[in-house]
Nucleic acid binder design. Structure first.
Length: 99
DNA sequence: CCATTGACCAGCT
DNA sequence: AAGCTGGCCAATG
């Protein structure tokens, strides 16, 4: 398997996410540059199951949670982080702004 | 404010 | 080569 070279930067960005904030695949893609949101999403899906990265804080740009194998776990992790999720959606005010 | 639609996207199988 | 993704954005109602 071949991991793209931008993944290290992706991991660092995700790892630096403040505890009570979320971000989107697209926002990360922009912050990295030259990659698309779906590539970021795929990279998240490839993370090992026991990763320490807060992958659960990466959601869709419209605030809804994407549908994938660990979606339920994602919701409970967000709630455990103190990030409210109602009707499968996180409010915009919890999005992190990259500088 | 929310939901839907359609064009665009890149990496699989 | 067709079809499916952990998506995004703008436009629309």
């Amino acid at each position: 398997m071949h991991t793209p070279e931008w993944t290290e930067q992706l991991y660092q960005l995700v790892d630096s996410l403040p505890r009570h904030q979320v971000t989107s695949y697209g926002a990360l893609a922009k912050a990295i540059g030259g990659v698309g949101p779906r590539q970021v999403a795929r990279a998240m899906g490839q993370l090992p199951e026991d990763t320490q990265l807060p992958w659960h804080r990466v959601i869709r740009s419209d605030g809804t949670l994407a549908e994938h194998a660990r979606a339920d776990e994602q919701e409970s992790r967000l709630l455990a982080d103190g990030i409210p999720v109602s009707r499968n959606r996180v409010h915009r005010r919890h999005f992190h702004r990259f500088n």
